[in-house]
Nucleic acid binder design. Structure first.
Length: 861
DNA sequence: TGCCCTAGGATTTTT
DNA sequence: TCCTAGGGCA
């Protein structure tokens, strides 16, 4: 049960908006997930069939959360709803429509970045392109860019002007050819192929257009051209497209996301309704003011300003560290102190940085303080070598055309089969038109292979055949254990007594628990089916028929309990639609990661209800038209092996983040600002606030890139609910080199009166005068961050001889906040020289000024 | 074939 | 600094 009274007026308008395009500009923390979920619930309550709704997110996490929240609101009434990521939805569609995709078989696998790289490298080798001039990553980025812009090989070749592009286009052609030969898609293909499928098969498009009459897209500002096209193709008929996003949070431009998609939505849909969610429920006033001020420096944005009814809260705290160690030390010490003082759990804290390389030192100091933490670094669980090895076995068994995976396993564990044998096998397979398993079977006929290698090949062949034959239906865990056992993988690791091998064993054990979980889920679904209960697909059908028999999903008095709803929603309001629970189980609402055994309905089934869905919507709440009721579609025939393994592989490929943030874990979170998008934490530390780090040196030359960095800063700031610390290190050891960086310009874009340079939880400084150190000015001497109490350190330093004041003129330090009669308030970012003649660099509201201490007429504030 | 060493490169990365 | 890919050698 849900109540519209839980919503503010704008939110409510967004939820109640019925038909037609809707653009929701949702600022950070403005409750957009709530709006989306309520909107879905409301549509269903008003008679829209759940299977006519498609909700798209970017991350699995977001999809899962939305699914759960809808389920909480609706219970089983949501069965048949699709809530999924772009990629899951498209893969699901591609598998269903595989017959329309010449060149691909249903068992296609999805290649991740590593797989892509190895395919591309083989292309470069084949084309005899020098990897120095044509770095694989660069080419791959170019190819990805083409795909995101829906530019097929032919167009790329046609348009390529420069030499690099021409070569890249050549590589692109070969790369695509190889992917197809391997029966593999990369991530970008998934979207591009779906668009192609729709464009070339009007009947297929027709079917999905008709099915997805209500489309909701989250994070619309992050869509790339391909995704944009996909959505707009699907929405073209009914135009019930609701997009939610925030141009200020567009931080994936470098990956092909085009913020214009959201900015030009009103052009695409002139009849659109635009709503702005500007009330923030997350952060304090001070944090929001700072975030607004920073992002306000961007030129290219839709005007808006977040506000909140929350308290003003603490001021932002600004810390000038000597170097990265001092910064890390400060962070760890602050966290410990806040834990002690305020009894906060570890998970209240997040330390956000621009690049993963910054995490190491932070870990070191957290470890030293004994503070539990979790790092969300670049290395994903499924990218680990041992996991990829086992997955490669599964992939070859599932899709024997997969040469990349075959190449990976051929000599792992060691079988004495090296590069040269691999090349011969691949060549033989190619010439004979065989897949890898078939080629292995014929190892005797592969020319130029020595007897020893031949025996090894045949033995591998037998092993794989055995695994394939005896693998029980759907039991991935057994299969994986067999693989680990029979290939000697376990033995290999156990023979190796290094800690790394130990870690690998542990990772594989973790992997086995993932497979076990998957098996259990599948078994559960199977049981439900055999006991006459229903899966997602069937649920829609049954619902539809039930509705036709006068069992309307529309308002009834029997509400579904709102027990799980946030904020203790009350539903006593008069106009609150409630939903009748019919007790139909929902295994996973719209979970696209189920085993590939789902049936495809005859298009006619749902098609029959297509006559006048709008009518149904507007005129017949609770009186839905009966469907054709042709009974449940038969599941597609697919051999059990593929069904089980394929489903699992797909899940792994598309949901590659079991390291995900678990609510239960109590640890300080370390992650990049990008990864933090969509999350919130009571206390946030932003570290490495330096020119060249953040904004990153790569962005300093281009204004658009800088604006994206600024948006990232906005995202980072708005993660904080209560407290935020901004840290700057005057000196930083990065990549083995010491850098001296100026403070980030974003510092100076925060109004100075919102920032403190001393944490109020600390005792006041001993003396009047300055507390902040002056790293660049060299005031720190030899104290390298060993001390726990920062300010005492400063005190002792001062007494060691660094003068705090001179007779004539004050001595300034980096981080001092000063006021100039003309320029206003600012922060000192560098001090050269001493005393009256010191040259001060001061940032005033975005402007950098150099002043001589003696004449500057600065006052402190 | 397999191991060891060195040189070079190193944002961000929802899928 | 630290990782990894590739070259050279046993």
């Amino acid at each position: 049960m849900y109540s519209l009274a839980d919503l503010n007026p704008v939110q409510r308008e967004a939820v109640e908006h019925r038909a037609g395009p809707l653009l929701i500009l949702a600022g950070a923390g403005s409750g957009k997930t709530r709006v989306l979920t309520y909107r879905i619930a409301h549509l269903i309550a008003r008679g829209v069939a759940p299977w006519n709704i498609l909700a798209i997110t970017f991350t699995n996490k977001a999809a899962k959360e939305m699914r759960q929240r809808v389920e909480t609101l609706l219970g089983s009434a949501g069965a048949g709803l699709w809530v999924s990521t772009f990629h899951s939805a498209c893969v699901r569609i591609l598998r269903r429509e595989i017959d329309h995709l010449p060149g691909y078989a249903r068992s296609f696998v999805i290649y991740d970045a590593g797989d892509q790289l190895s395919v591309l490298k083989s292309c470069l080798k084949e084309l005899d392109l020098d990897e120095k001039k044509f770095p694989a990553r660069g080419i791959l980025a170019q190819i990805s860019d083409w795909k995101n812009r829906l530019c097929p090989v032919e167009d790329a070749e046609g348009k390529a002007a420069e030499y690099f592009e021409k070569m890249a286009a050549k590589a692109y052609r070969l790369y695509q050819k190889k992917l197809m030969a391997n029966n593999a898609l990369d991530f970008d293909d998934i979207i591009m192929l779906a668009v192609e499928l729709f464009r070339q098969n009007p009947t297929v498009l027709d079917y999905y257009r008709d099915r997805f009459r209500y489309i909701l897209v989250d994070e619309y500002q992050d869509t790339n051209h391909a995704q944009y096209t996909l959505v707009n193709l699907l929405a073209a008929r009914y135009r019930n497209l609701c997009v939610v996003g925030d141009d200020d949070q567009a931080v994936y431009g470098w990956r092909g996301a085009d913020v214009q998609n959201i900015l030009a939505f009103e052009r695409d849909y002139p009849e659109t309704m635009v709503l702005k969610l500007e009330q923030n429920y997350r952060s304090t006033k001070h944090i929001l003011q700072a975030a607004n001020a920073v992002v306000g420096h961007n030129q290219d944005r839709k005007a808006k300003s977040l506000w909140t009814e929350n308290q003003s809260g603490d001021l932002l705290i600004h810390y000038v560290a000597e170097d990265e160690r001092d910064e890390a030390r400060y962070v760890a010490e602050r966290i410990q102190r806040l834990k002690d003082r305020e009894g906060r759990p570890n998970k209240d804290f997040a330390v956000l940085y621009r690049s993963n390389a910054q995490s190491r030192i932070l870990e070191e100091y957290l470890l030293r303080e004994g503070i539990p933490y979790r790092v969300f670094s670049g290395m994903k669980f499924y990218e680990r070598m041992e996991i990829k090895d086992i997955l490669a076995y599964l992939r070859v068994l599932h899709n024997p055309a997969d040469r990349v995976s075959f190449s990976r396993i051929l000599n792992v564990p060691k079988r004495g089969l090296g590069e040269s044998v691999l090349a011969k096998v691949l060549l033989y397979a190619e010439e004979q038109g065989l897949d890898m398993l078939a080629a292995l079977r014929e190892a005797e006929y592969i020319p130029g292979v020595r007897p020893q290698a031949r025996r090894a090949l045949l033995s591998l062949s037998r092993l794989l055949e055995e695994l394939r034959e005896q693998s029980p239906e759907g039991e991935i865990t057994d299969l994986v254990e067999e693989i680990l056992d029979k290939t000697g993988y376990w033995a290999m690791l156990k023979a190796d007594n290094t800690p790394e091998a130990q870690a690998r064993v542990e990772n594989l054990q973790e992997f086995l628990s993932v497979t076990a979980e998957y098996d259990a889920k599948i078994a559960e679904e199977r049981d439900e089916r055999t006991t006459g209960e229903i899966d997602e697909r069937a649920a829609g059908e049954i619902d539809e028929r039930a509705a036709g028999e006068g069992n309307p999903p529309a308002p009834t008095s029997a509400g579904i309990s709102s027990s799980g709803a946030e904020n203790g929603l009350s539903s006593e309001t008069g106009d609150t639609p409630t939903l009748g629970g019919r007790g139909l189980p929902v295994p996973e609402v719209g979970d696209t990661t189920m085993a590939g055994s789902e049936g495809r309905p005859a298009p006619g089934v749902e098609g029959t209800s297509s006559d006048g869905s709008e009518d149904r919507l507007s005129s017949s709440e609770g009186n839905m038209a009966p469907s054709g009721g042709q009974g449940l579609p038969a599941p597609e025939v697919e051999d059990t092996f593929s069904a089980g393994v394929g489903g699992f592989l797909e899940q792994v490929a598309l949901v590659a983040d079991i390291d995900q943030l678990n609510e239960g874990d109590d640890g300080v979170v370390l992650m990049t600002m990008h990864s933090a998008k969509g999350l919130e934490f009571p206390v946030v530390f932003l570290v490495g606030m330096e020119e060249g780090i953040f904004p990153s040196s790569h962005s300093l030359l281009a204004e658009t890139a800088l604006e994206e960095e600024r948006r990232l800063c906005y995202v980072a700031l708005t993660r904080a609910k209560e407290k935020i610390y901004l840290c700057y290190a005057g000196q930083r050891l990065l990549y083995g080199r010491i850098q001296n960086n100026l403070p980030s310009r974003f510092f100076s874009e925060v109004p100075p009166d919102l920032m403190l340079d001393r944490d109020p939880i600390d005792p006041p400084p001993q003396r009047q005068g300055r507390t902040s150190g002056a790293p660049r000015g060299g005031g720190f001497g030899g104290s390298t961050g060993g001390g726990r109490k920062k300010y005492r350190d400063y005190g002792s330093l001062a007494s060691e001889g660094t003068p705090l004041t001179t007779g004539k003129s004050e001595t300034y330090h980096v981080g001092d906040k000063v006021e100039h009669e003309k320029f206003g308030r600012g922060i000192i970012v560098s001090v050269k020289g001493e005393g009256a003649s010191a040259i001060l660099t001061v940032v005033f509201d975005g402007q950098l000024k150099q002043l001589i201490s003696e004449y500057a007429k600065l006052t402190r504030f």
